[in-house]
């Protein structure tokens, strides 16, 4: 499957990846090649097969609702850029 430039740009936007036009071209070509390889799965009839998302078939693993030791505020913040004990993020309501 050949990805169009518009598709590649759209995927980069969905993935929140800032890619140069060179990178977009390169990944577009490489992804098309990988998708061609993946097409071979269509040779298999899977109409009667259930999907496997996880090999452990445990369901609803519950946890007691009790407070356990956890990170201090200082530890939780130690790897971020912070101001007044808050993480600094981009503004949500401004134009980018």
């Amino acid at each position: 499957m050949k990805l169009t430039d518009i598709q590649v740009k759209h995927v980069a936007k969905l993935a929140n990846l800032p890619l140069s036009s060179e990178e977009l071209k390169k990944y577009g070509e490489q992804l098309s090649k990988i998708l061609d390889y993946i097409e071979q799965l269509n040779k298999i009839d899977t109409s009667k097969v259930n999907p496997t998302f996880n090999v452990v078939d445990k369901k609803n693993v519950w946890d007691e609702d009790i407070v356990k030791p956890s990170l201090s505020q200082e530890q939780a913040l130690q790897n971020g850029q912070t101001k007044n004990d808050y993480f600094i993020t981009k503004g949500v309501f401004e134009e980018e």
Partner: peptide, 11 residues
């Protein structure tokens, strides 16, 4: 979904 079904066959 297709890949997850093929995964079942491999398993």
């Amino acid at each position: 979904i297709k890949a997850a079904k093929v995964r079942t066959l491999i398993k």
